[in-house]
């Protein structure tokens, strides 16, 4: 699970020598924030084969309840589009991230 990103540290809150003092803390780093587009699944055409999950270089696609369709964890998805390219039923499309 990812943790809600905390406020940026003050100088007085930095660890000695800027060390990372908690093992496995890289999981807190949400690395999907520079994505320019995100994958969206058209559930009507998805056969839940799992090809997108296998090809995802970030390992960020999971089958999500209740209906167990694949979905990308957008805290890590970089928007590379490999899932779109590999999907045998062409049910995934990239949607621009716009704010």
């Amino acid at each position: 699970m990812t943790r809600q990103q905390t406020a940026k540290p003050r100088w007085s809150e930095l660890a000695v020598g800027c060390a990372v003092t908690e093992a496995g803390s890289a999981r807190y780093n949400r690395t999907g924030d520079w994505r320019s587009s995100r994958p969206v699944w058209e559930h009507a055409h998805c056969v839940r084969c799992g090809v997108c999950q296998m090809f995802c270089p970030e390992g960020c696609i999971q089958f999500e309840p209740p209906k167990d369709f694949p979905a990308a964890d957008l805290e890590y998805c970089k928007g590379c589009g490999i899932c779109v390219h590999e999907c045998p039923t062409a049910c995934i499309r990239m949607v621009a991230e716009e704010e």
Partner: peptide, 16 residues
Amino acid sequence: PVSIGPVGIPDIYTES
């Protein structure tokens, strides 16, 4: 275990 000498992104370099 600790990691020393990690990257310091622009958000913390000034503070460091």
